[in-house]
Write a protein that binds this DNA or RNA. Structure first.
Length: 496
RNA sequence: GGGCUGGUAGCUCAAUGGUAGAGCAGUUGCCUUUUAAGCAAUUGGUUCCGGGUUCGAAUCCCGGCCGGCCCA
């Protein structure tokens, strides 16, 4: 053993561990059970009245994110849920011993402080600290203060670090919470009731997607994680819940990409005695109020910049309404598109640069053109109506033209944001549609849902809104991962 | 699943096949209204992992792991 201690000055974790040990030896608790605050940072700052320095006392707490040490005084900043507030710590105010302890604090430590509000000569409202407490010691250093954390993998795997050092991430993810909260208040104000329906299902219905399968041990049966909430919510219409909604986690066992997370959040709304036209009004009112009251564009307009194209999306203008058929005709230049023989459709689609799977049916070829060539160009809010009947087995057929549906797909920013239907409430028509769709796999038909329809479901409008995609749009995010707190990544890798 | 691309200090990034560096953070000093505070000095590396080529590999090749973008 040597008399000289090992030099740990290069190892920030070791340095902090040593400080921790010294505190414990001195009888100081580095991880306190509580700290009494009076205000969040932003609320505290608002209390200051110009020209009345040191008139208001506050107690605040947060993570130490900036330290500017000037010898016998320091300016530091702490971060809480509302943002940052600056603290001014003076040796001759707090006393020599406390000041020495303050100098031992590290960036990342969680600190509580009590003091009075004043305005510095550069105009920043600041807490003149009279007393302070280390609330929780941080044993690991924070990422770089200026560039923040930019390694995408670490941003997602250690989101807590991203939230501490990247203000845009914190703002964007808080915005998501406000969006969801606004949706709840908006719908409740119109007498919709929020319900919760099962995630574990015997049949995965209401959409076309591959489900996750899990196993219930006590019952010894497999369950599917739901791929939609539609069939449960419609049972509630039968039960007399006339206006229901669920903001629910949906699971689809499919690819992971910039636009897809295996679990995502869907709003589904059902309104008895309404129809798809009623849903148009509902979604337009909902989205414009969201932009106006939650996003609050700086210029006072209802315009949001589309991240992909840089184009403005104006929620305040007239929302375009266009028939699916007309979009297809315009995109292909074929007035008689729907009457073309399949071979001609394939040739034309391939000429447009699409690859067509040989087993596809004609409506699938047409829809490939819609989703690849048309949808991405629909940047401003657009209701696409009169979709072909093959596309939505749960919707009512149009009375005048039974080859199309009483539905719309609302497309904004080139993405499908909200499909809505006049809901099918004829049990026989619904059964026929299910049986045709299921083909060989009749056991996948949700018989209890059909039984419920036979008891009588009121006519209704229904709509699904992908909350994640909506948040991508509203926040100008580039990827679904940027609006999900903990997006799915392959296990392993990452932090150790 | 396929194509392209990336992984270097705690973080953000450099480094013609030839001694692995900088800024921030850390450490030691100075500084009682700072704003990426400033000044001086200074520590810190399994270059993602495993093979290979080479006198010599962060760099070239092969395989793997984990990301990103595009496509399916």
């Amino acid at each position: 053993m040597s008399d000289t201690p090992i030099d740990i000055s290069h190892d920030q974790h070791a340095v902090r561990r040593q400080k921790l040990a010294e505190m414990r030896t001195a009888g100081v608790d580095p991880f306190r059970a509580n700290f009494a605050t009076t205000h969040f940072s932003g609320d505290a700052i608002k209390l200051h009245v110009d020209g009345q320095d040191n008139a208001v006392t506050v107690s605040v707490a947060g993570r130490l994110v900036v330290i500017r040490d000037m010898g016998k005084s320091q300016f530091v900043k702490i971060l809480d849920q509302q943002g940052q507030v600056q603290l001014y710590v003076k040796k001759d105010v707090v006393g020599d011993a406390a000041y020495a302890a303050f100098k031992k604090l590290d960036l990342g430590d969680i600190l509580g402080a009590k003091g009075t509000l004043f305005k510095t000569k550069t105009g920043e409202v600041t807490v003149r600290v009279e007393s302070f407490t280390l609330v929780s010691k941080a044993l690991r250093p924070l990422p770089e203060k200026w560039h923040g954390l930019s390694d995408a993998e670490q941003v997602y795997r250690q989101r807590y670090l991203d939230l501490i050092v990247n203000a845009e991430s914190r703002a964007r993810l808080l915005m998501r919470s406000r969006v969801v909260s606004h949706i709840r208040r908006f719908l409740e104000a119109q007498s919709f009731v929020e319900v919760e329906t099962p995630v574990l299902e015997n049949t995965a219905g209401g959409a076309a997607a591959r489900p996750f399968v899990t196993h219930h041990n006590a019952l010894d049966v497999d369950f599917f994680l739901r791929i939609a909430t539609e069939l449960r919510l419609k049972r509630l219409l039968v039960g007399g819940f006339d206006r229901v909604f669920e903001i629910g986690r949906i699971f689809r066992n499919e690819g992971v990409s910039r636009r897809h997370n295996p679990e995502f959040t869907m709003l589904e709304v059902y309104q008895a005695y309404s129809d798809y036209r009623g849903m148009m009004t509902l979604i337009r009112d909902l989205l414009t109020s969201l932009v106006r009251e939650v996003i609050k564009p700086a210029d006072g307009s209802l315009k949001i910049k589309h991240a992909g194209s840089g184009q403005d999306i104006d929620f305040g203008g007239e929302w375009r309404e266009v028939r699916y058929k007309d979009l297809i005709i315009a995109a292909t230049g074929e007035a008689g598109w729907f009457a073309l023989p399949k071979a001609d459709k394939v040739a034309k689609a391939e000429a447009l640069g699409l690859s067509i799977h040989p087993t596809w049916e004609e409506f699938e070829i047409t829809n490939e053109i819609f989703s690849k060539k048309i949808e991405p160009t629909l940047i401003e809010p657009t209701f696409v109506t009169h979709l072909p009947k093959e596309l939505c087995p749960l919707a009512k057929l149009n009375a005048e033209d039974p080859t199309v549906l009483d539905v719309f797909e609302l497309t904004i920013g080139g993405m499908e944001v909200a499909p809505a239907y006049s809901e099918q409430n004829d049990p026989d028509a619904q059964r026929a549609m299910f049986e045709a769709q299921a083909g060989e796999e009749q056991q996948n038909i949700d018989q209890d849902f059909l039984l419920a329809l036979e008891h009588g479901m009121p006519p209704a409008g229904g709509m699904g809104v992908g909350i994640d995609r909506l948040c991508i749009l509203l926040t100008g995010a580039e990827s679904i991962r940027d609006v999900i707190l903990f997006p799915q990544l392959r296990p392993g890798g990452g932090a150790s």
